[in-house]
């Protein structure tokens, strides 16, 4: 898990609004506002950091540094966010 790298799905359109990020998935050629996904501040930062190159471990270190949380808390938040983003088809493993 720590060595895994993720990339954003190219079929996702997103906008940052204040500290949050709203994601719209284009599926079967339709961008459906009936199923949008909203990321809170931490998840939004994780989303920003996912670039197809950074490993999960590096993202965790950034979260620990920027949000002043323990590595365990960061790991828990990260695992939860990645799982939800994968389920939404917003990211995939490289």
């Amino acid at each position: 898990m720590q060595e895994t790298t993720y990339q954003k799905d190219p079929n996702i359109v997103f906008r940052k609004i204040a500290d949050e990020v709203i994601l719209v998935l284009i599926k079967q050629d339709v961008g459906d506002f009936q199923s949008v996904y909203t990321l809170n501040e931490v998840a939004a930062r994780i989303w920003e950091l996912i670039d197809g190159e950074r490993k999960v471990k590096e993202i965790k270190d950034k979260i620990v540094e920027e949000f002043e949380v323990t590595p365990e808390e960061a790991e828990k938040d990260l695992a939860e966010s990645l799982q939800k983003l994968e389920k939404f088809e917003g990211i995939k493993e490289v």
Partner: peptide, 19 residues
């Protein structure tokens, strides 16, 4: 934001669905 997201989706040649 709705305008920007809509614009981006439509400019990719995809359709848009909303209430």
């Amino acid at each position: 934001e709705f305008l920007e997201l809509s614009n981006e989706i439509l400019s990719r040649g995809s359709c848009l669905r909303f209430r």
